[in-house]
Design a protein around this nucleic acid. Sequence first.
DNA 1: GCCGTTTTCGGCCCGACTGTTTTCAGTCG
Length: 576
Amino acid sequence: MPVHDEDLAEAFDEMADLLALKAENPFRINAYRRAAQVVRALPEELQSKIAAGFDPDALPGIGADLAEKIRVFVRTGELPGLASLRRSVPAGLREIMNIQNLGPKRARALYDALGVCDLKTLKTALAEHRVREVRGFGAKMEERLTKAVEEIEGRSRRLLRSVAAQYAKALESYLRALPGVTKVDIAGSFRRGCETVGDLDFLVCSQRPLDIGGALLEYDETASLLAKGPTRSAAVLKSGLQVDVRLVPEESYGAALYYFTGSKAHNVHVRRLAMARGLKMNEYGVFRGRKRIAGDTEPSVFAAIGLPYIAPELREDRGEIEAAQAQALPIPVARSDLRGDLHVHTKATDGAAGLAAMAEAAKSAGLEYIAITDHSKHLGMVRGLDASRLARQMDDIDALNAALDGVTVLKGIEVDILQEGSLALPDRVLKKLDVVVASVHDYFGLNRRKQTERLLRAIDRPYVSVLGHPMCRLIQERPAIECDWEKVFRRAHERPIYLELNSQPTRLDLNDVLVREAAANDVLISIASDGHSISSFDFLAGGVLQARRGWLSKNQVLNTRPLCELRRLLRKTFLA
DNA sequence: GCCGTTTTCGGCCCGACTGTTTTCAGTCG
């Protein structure tokens, strides 16, 4: 029976929630939460790793007990102890303990006092004003909970980073323009470049700190103020996005920026490290005894605890701290390292602009080359190119290149991978091109074995250069295909072909974990816009963020190469 | 339940804010 890492992580999370409801040892609870997080960050599924002899005890935060539980889970799909725990705690309490302002303690208190055992009974108790009678609760809390329950039903979910960016930039400008404000930064998951963002964390330095809460209340886009204090204010925007604004003194700005950038797991780990060195770390600085020894800038904080600077995108406690200690951190690729884009559409198929316009836009975006990769003709792609239209486009590209200065257009195609792994155009057509991006656009639901075989067969075709948006996911809309990525990466390396990191904000495909794994298999990554209009090259910045989260350095990215070297690398993908 | 450059036992990150208290617990990030 296939057992997935996400199922295991969810079981660990449930274990933690139920133990919390029983007010068990918080450190034991935390051990389960940590285990869930560690499992979620794994690039390869545990079931196959364990089958190959891997000992889960080797994972950080996993000891003898959890290792045994993992082995049992992988074998049976059951987490030892979870079933009996479920019987001792009402199931519905789990869903309400994650409501804002309700935690395990309050959820339990409502259950004990009122018999509240799920969302429905909670709603009733709130409506009948029985909650305010419970010891530890009151009218205010009742009001907050009522609001939180309403919000849950409206399902305010995480926003794509690119969407959150619009709200973030507007509020940033507003805060920056306030009298007395000297510094503004956006920290949190936004700064770490996460693909989705749940809230926005602002850091502010101001000579008039007491004004900030009021200013936030007066902001056009503020729906309601959640908190207002001398160092922290919080609000919900009309967009549903929650905003936290922290006020910090200049001398603590770096420490606060570091602290509020997170991730939480990274912070906890680094703080343990500092503690082992006899230092104390918080958002105000690094302290030896009472003496602050660092804190005005982020680099000063790193220096004080004896670590090299770690880029925000890496701060997930996925090995970056150990790498930093070993002086083995990557120098993450930057947007300015990109010289080209190997996945671009035109109005010949579903794009909005013509060849020349896309080439000029690429040049303005600082690129030296692009590959035009319109769709192949296939089911569902109404205007996909057949062999004759493709031939005409190739002639057009020759003519355009003769006229262009400072940017070169390569001939390519985004060819469909058919259900059995063959391609939608014959080899004799593909071999005339510079770049062949092969992508899956249908049959997403094949099982793991079939999907893996399909991709391996496509990789083995003699004229394929890049596997396009390999996971085929749409963030928050469509899950990734099931696939043995380890096999795909190994085959891509042997062949060789390259893997795409598609920069469309809804795709970001490969994701951070798999990008890192692909690069670890010595597969070059093509960071591509998949552009359909002249503004699409802006997406590359988001792709680069994801690449940085996947630890990629410049030399691991295909399109950082100068054109002549790129041509050489592309020729290597064409067999015979 | 994990873990060890003071420890194999006794720790485990830490401060802010709120509401409900009468000195603090719970939640959040």
